[in-house]
Design a protein around this nucleic acid. Structure first.
Lengths: 218, 218
DNA sequence: TAGATTGTTAATCGATTAACAATC
DNA sequence: TAGATTGTTAATCGATTAACAATC
């Protein structure tokens, strides 16, 4: 692969399915890091995937393996970390400190994955001013000014359906560039803003419909 | 469409992207249910989708619209409910009553979406015997016998990476047919078991990589 | 009727999978 | 060297999108 291709390659967006599998490879490699080298066949077998798919995903991170040997586990892990930006931790605000919001505030794993939740926001005066899992909770009124002052780019929404879109709009106006939305409603914004809608009802629909289909088959 | 096609159609699995969008249409329709009829163009515009995609999704639920008028909002909502089985509530057990597990135990929305979490399970003796959000917490030892006795088909995993696979295996042996996994590791099982892996690291990878790409573009 | 909308068949696009050459 | 594995190009498959006929 020549330099021209590399440039072209880097301009092409990475397929979303690949992005979703890379952390799974990393989680898997963590468990088996006694081994020096691993082949994509082994990874695929253990994760119920196709070897060719693993190989293609890995090639997108830019790492090269050794024929007859496989990939260096260490090298592969750190290539995934670099590729996904886990070494450049980004700050985020979380809005809506209900039970799901609190759980996410307290999740220790995010910093390893490049995300640092700085603070939480809520309208509930009994929460404002307290700390939850060591993160300060501010009144939602302060959200726009703090987003601007601290140049926060990522917002996490754990809000009721009724106000999620409105608060999302406020945050985007204040300069937020990416929204991770756990509210039970789809958030829509200007095209250039990244929105990732995590919809529990959507996932549950997949689970229960597949279960129905499975039960009907027998 | 004749009866033969209907039968053929019902045997074909519904595409997963469609299953994920149907609940989003429902959440959207709830907000605007003053209107009698709605066109797929309107739905698509409001949800940033393509009209043809909405039309195709809707057609898979079996509902028919009226040319020049659109779809009856009421009819469409109840068709989605029926199609996704929201009227046949299924029981589930949740394993791992940490902060995420507790949040999910307490989420009121699931019953509307056809899921009733009956109880929680944990190894922590300070939790066993208590109630969290009105759900009893049992020791994980009792999991297999209760799954068998109550014929539970759905398990929700909110466990640390270190024990998630092992407990999943136990549950499948006891008769669980579907696993909804929030643990930070991919769960693999026998082919006929439905597994839905919700991996926060995977989602975060999509969000942060897209944000990187977006920032590099400018 | 004219026109807007649905329903269906065909074309396109992107991800997965297959085939095979390159490598150690 | 032979053989196992990677890397790359081509084929396949499924979802999205386009085109257009059917409908009220």
């Amino acid at each position: 692969m020549n330099v021209g291709n590399l440039v072209k390659e880097s301009l092409k967006a990475i397929p979303e399915p690949t992005l979703r599998r890379l952390p799974i490879y990393h989680q898997y490699l963590k468990k088996i890091d006694k081994e020096d080298f691993i082949s994509c066949t082994t990874i695929a077998n253990d994760l119920c995937l196709e070897a060719i798919q693993v190989r293609k995903d890995i090639s997108l991170t830019g790492i090269v393996g050794k024929p007859q040997v496989g990939y260096s586990v260490k090298q592969l892990m750190s290539a995934i970390e670099d590729f996904l930006g886990w070494n450049n931790v980004m700050d985020a605000f979380l809005v809506g400190v209900g039970s799901l919001g609190s759980a996410i505030l307290g999740y220790k794993g995010f910093e390893k994955y490049g995300l640092n939740i700085l603070a939480g926001f809520d309208v509930d005066d009994s929460k404002v001013g307290t700390e939850i899992h060591r993160k300060k909770i501010y009144h939602i009124e302060k959200l726009p000014s703090l987003i601007k002052r601290m140049k926060i780019k990522i917002g996490i929404l754990t809000l009721p359906a009724s106000c999620a879109q409105e608060i999302a709009n406020t945050m985007v106006e204040a300069g937020i560039k990416a929204l991770w939305n756990f509210s039970p409603i789809k958030i829509t914004t200007r095209e250039e803003i990244i929105v990732l809608n995590e919809n529990l009802a959507a996932s549950l629909a997949v689970l229960s419909k597949k279960l129905q289909e499975q039960q009907n088959r027998n």
